[in-house]
């Protein structure tokens, strides 16, 4: 049997290669219907509709970014009213320093909302993706280098409750996968 990595290390999962986005998409639908949970498809670019094919819901990131943006907005409110109304009220051209001055505070409120939202979006995305990380069991497989070029892969992890090496190999073969390989961790 074809296997990669340190044989004494635990099995990470079984992976197979596909040649085009269409085949990968249909393979994903079958694996979803077979009831697997811990698996993933890998592609050089995001494939339209793959979330449904894998049976996944919308990413939660949007809601998290809303919280980030809200904290940026509140930060700007405190940052501007704190010094301008309380710590250091500065009367310029006879303008008020209380709540009535709020229109002049809109630009900075807006910018801070954007800034905090953008940071939350990027770092939230990285954390949800488990990045950054220096290595991964899949990187032991030389063929997997092509995933960032023009090849497509499926990997079903050993942590899945329905995982059995034999059955997964047969499933991936029946779906048209090639170069079916058992991946060992480090």
């Amino acid at each position: 049997m074809n296997s990669i990595g340190d044989k004494s290390a635990p099995v990470f999962g079984v992976a197979a290669e596909f040649s085009c986005a269409r085949d990968l998409y249909h393979a994903a639908e079958k694996i979803r219907d077979a009831g697997f949970r811990r698996w993933d498809v890998f592609s050089p670019f995001p494939i339209h509709g793959m979330d449904e094919a894998m049976g996944m819901r919308r990413s939660l990131l949007g809601k998290i970014v809303f919280i980030g943006g809200l904290s940026g907005f509140l930060m700007a409110v405190v940052l501007q009213f704190g010094p301008s109304s309380v710590l250091y009220p500065l009367v310029v051209a006879g303008k008020p320093t209380n709540l009535f001055t709020v229109p002049a505070f809109f630009p900075i409120m807006f910018e801070m909302t954007i800034l905090f939202s953008a940071f939350t979006a990027v770092f939230g995305m990285l954390i949800m993706n488990g990045l950054p990380r220096l290595n991964h069991a899949l990187f032991n497989w030389d063929r997997f280098k092509k995933v960032t070029e023009d090849k497509f892969f499926v990997a079903i992890e050993s942590g899945d409750p329905k995982f059995s090496e034999r059955a997964v190999r047969d499933l991936l073969e029946s779906l048209g996968g090639t170069n079916i390989t058992t991946i060992h961790g480090d």
Partner: peptide, 13 residues
């Protein structure tokens, strides 16, 4: 950053 191109990454990305 250890990008692997899995759909579980792409969807957040």
């Amino acid at each position: 950053l250890g990008w692997r191109g899995g759909n579980r990454q792409w969807r957040h990305y």
